[in-house]
C-alpha cells in the first residue's frame, strides 16, 4: 500500500510518514505537509468515490468520516489523519458488494440523480447514524432520540445538491431512521 506522490517535483520538500486506518485497513505513506486528505484518498490511494466539488469546504461532496465524524476532506490536512480511522464511500459498501442501508435508502428513495454529491451525502447521513447509534438506548423502550425531519435537513446543510432539490435525500435519511435498520 506504500505509494509516493507524483514525481517531478520542481523543488525538494520534506515528506512526512503517516499511518492510519483507511476503510478498516492499516495503511501508511509519505506525504508533503501541504497534502490534503481529499488528494491523498483520490490520487495516492486511488479511491475515486470521494468527490472534489469545490476544494474550499463549501459543497460537502468530499465528505469522509474521521473517527466517525464527518469532515470536508478538502480542508483536512492529510498529516492529521495520522493514527486516525478514516472511512470513505468505498468503506461504507459491504465487502461482498452489497449496499449499506444508507446507500440502499438513497437508491430506493430516488435520491440519486447525477450522483456527484451522493458520496458526500451518504457519508453525512452515516455520520448522523453513528451519532444515534452511539447514543444511550434501553432495549424495549421507545426511542425518542431520532432526528426530526427538520433536524435531518439542518444536518445536511453542508452538502449541496443541484439535481434533486434535496427532498428525496431527506426522505432517504428519514426512512432509514424510521426503520432502525442501521
Amino acid at each position: 500500500m506504500k505509494k509516493q506522490l507524483k514525481k517531478n517535483k520542481p523543488k525538494i520538500e520534506v515528506l512526512h510518514e503517516i499511518s492510519f486506518t483507511l476503510n478498516e485497513k492499516q495503511v501508511s505513506c509519505k506525504i508533503k505537509a501541504s497534502t490534503i486528505l481529499l488528494d491523498l484518498i483520490r490520487d495516492v490511494f486511488e479511491l475515486k468515490g470521494t468527490k472534489p466539488g469545490c476544494h474550499e469546504g463549501e459543497c460537502g461532496a468530499c465528505t469522509v468520516l474521521v473517527n466517525d465524524a464527518p469532515v470536508n476532506s478538502c480542508l483536512f490536512l492529510a498529516v492529521n489523519a495520522n493514527g486516525k480511522n478514516i472511512t470513505t464511500i468505498e468503506g461504507l459498501t459491504n465487502h461482498d458488494g452489497s449496499l449499506h442501508p444508507v446507500q440502499e435508502s438513497l437508491v430506493n428513495n430516488g435520491a440519486v440523480q447525477c450522483g456527484f454529491c451522493t458520496s458526500g451525502m451518504a457519508m453525512s447521513i452515516k455520520a448522523m447514524v453513528n451519532h444515534f447509534e452511539n447514543s444511550h438506548h434501553v432495549p424495549g423502550e421507545i426511542r425518542n432520540d431520532f432526528p426530526t425531519r427538520d433536524e435531518i435537513k439542518k444536518f445536511l446543510e453542508g452538502n449541496l445538491c443541484r439535481c434533486t432539490g434535496y427532498v428525496k435525500i431527506v426522505d432517504a435519511a428519514e426512512k432509514l431512521f424510521a426503520k432502525e435498520e442501521f
Binding site: 479511491l47 475515486k48 468515490g49 470521494t50 468527490k51 470513505t88 464511500i89 468505498e90 461504507l92 459498501t93 449496499l99 446507500q103 438513497l106 437508491v107 430506493n108 428513495n109 430516488g110 440519486v112 440523480q113 447525477c114 450522483g115 456527484f116 451522493t118 458520496s119 451518504a122
Partner: peptide, 16 residues
Amino acid sequence: IPKHDANIRATGKAVY
C-alpha cells in the same frame, strides 16, 4: 423504479 445505475453512483463506483 429507482434509477438503474443508482447503486453504482451511490457506492462511488461511477466514473466521472
